[in-house]
Amino acid sequence: MDRADVGALVQSAVDGDAAAWKALVEGLSPLVWSVVRAHRLSEADAHEVYQTVWFRFAQHLGRIREPDKAGAWLASTARNECLKVLRTLRRLTPTADPAVLDRVSEDRTPEESLLDSEEAAAHGERVRRLWQEFEKLGDRCRRLLRVLMASPPPSYQEVSAALGIAVGSIGPTRQRCLRRLRARLDTREVL
């Protein structure tokens, strides 16, 4: 989402414009959701973190110092809440390793069944395969790409806030991860 637009929408929302708030939700909720998904929380935790982030954003609306960076604010708030959830899980289940946590979020959304409809089958197969290969990438690539997948595409500043990584490292890593994914897809096609 364009930063100037975000800043203006935040200002309008502060002034009482509910439509501006709705536009912010439409434009930025895919980013918040992507950050939550990138951290692979359970379905219930993902829903609660997402809500907490938006409740807090509403609460801070008139107090955000740089309204045009609201996307980065949301992304870093989401990250912090995700890390708290992961910390709680670690505390409650000392033996939990990342693989166990991964399994929690393996239920795919019901939307996947949409792909079973016949007219979508061909395209669906390709999308499904892309997703499968994406899921098999290493943690770092999977996390970065999941955040980059937000629609509209996030700025690097938002990605940085979402993952706690330096802006400068995002571009090169993105290239590597996408090439790695491309290579996996190509290999499967040859076989």
Binding site: P30, T109, E111, L148, S151
Partner: peptide
């Protein structure tokens, strides 16, 4: 393509969007 796949396979649940609004 990944962005498109995410929109199909892992979109923001409609009820969460509503709660945020």
């Amino acid at each position: 393509e990944l962005r498109q796949a995410a929109a199909i396979l892992d979109p923001v649940p409609a009820e969460l969007r509503r709660i945020a609004v």
